[in-house]
Design a binder for these strands. Sequence first.
DNA 1: GCAAAAGTGTTGTCGGTACACCCATGC
DNA 2: GCATGGGTGTACCGACAACACTTTTGC
Lengths: 219, 219
Amino acid sequence: MKQGDLGVAVDLVVFTVDEGELRVVLIRMKRAPFAGRWAIPGGRIGEDETVEAAAERELREKTSLTDVYLEQLYTFSEPGRDPQARCVSVAHMALVPPTATLRTTDKYDGIGWFPALRPPPLAFDHKRILAYAVRRLRDKLAYSNVAYSLLPRAFSLGELQRVYEVILDEKLDPRNFQRRVLQLGMVEATGEVRSGERHRPARLYRFHARRLEPLAVRP
Amino acid sequence: MKQGDLGVAVDLVVFTVDEGELRVVLIRMKRAPFAGRWAIPGGRIGEDETVEAAAERELREKTSLTDVYLEQLYTFSEPGRDPQARCVSVAHMALVPPTATLRTTDKYDGIGWFPALRPPPLAFDHKRILAYAVRRLRDKLAYSNVAYSLLPRAFSLGELQRVYEVILDEKLDPRNFQRRVLQLGMVEATGEVRSGERHRPARLYRFHARRLEPLAVRP
DNA sequence: GCAAAAGTGTTGTCGGTACACCCATGC
DNA sequence: GCATGGGTGTACCGACAACACTTTTGC
């Protein structure tokens, strides 16, 4: 079967939770056919590179993020998805804490965090890819501890709960929430507290060393 | 980024359950470098074709199966996975009833059902793909009704239970099993029974029309 | 009558949910 | 002193697991 100029790319839906909102990293395209449009970061895989390696590399090059949770999601292949050239895209999801700093190259016209549920108009089929990633993130949060990637080293249970509430888009009961994460052994107290805020100081927690991923779906 | 002779293929792990065993369709390669080896069916995607369409087409061409449950699993991309040419493979899983008949083309040296847990030596990285598919099938069985694709139109609860037992590789209690599938509304009685076997006749059931896929992960 | 699978109910445990008040601090 | 989020316990309910015997047929 002849394949012509078929290309393979990775695309990266990078999430965080900040200020009570699920956010995604977008970069602004400089060149036609999507000049001025925002897009999720991504790029072609190298000749001698796996998609996993390409995903890490593209993430580093286009956003300066490293050492993040990264998971392959789905491969999108509509023939018209890239108007320039036939290109199949292996979509990934990445999770980072809101403190992560972003920096892109001068090939792009900017980078920033955007509301994941109400993104600006996006290039290519990135709207669809983003919607798919949001669904997967919700599913995954329910049966794994991926939330650890969205939080700093130490955090209060209130912060953890807010991450869940934002992603699942529902209110949770603090007593039930606390009991669950504690008796699942998902987190442990650091022994420290954070004061200096205008309310009672919160005990701080960290995720347990063993990164349990009960139903992880990576090969 | 230059990509040279990069190709994109689909590979299909086709499962059934028969005679108390999880089985997979394999075809026998005629040509080097894997002449005589068994492989899971697959092939390159067309110039103007999605991977989903390519998966259906390849399945039809290489096994003569149509109208089956088909799900994209993962994209494998080790540079050395195909010694002939760089080729990324989008792996899929298909589920068919054991009554399905197989027929391949004369490009292959045979087709047949093999034990999925103890396959013969396989071409390419198909051992890894198969192992990944088995894991996903197990996970999926637990929270969906994909089993419907593995059974004929009408079946006894005993047959359904055996499908679960074979895939999950554990014994289930017939009373608990029956109660669960009935009160989940997964199946309904057809009103008929199957006699002619040397034991009490079994009531027959069918899956409910609404194919519930609670946590389906397709875009 | 015997082998073989079908069919059937109860009980205990555990996890999940619902629910409201006091606490410690910064200002 | 008041506003703000932190922190805590109980009671109910439904889901699930454990468990053994009778029934109906073909031979």
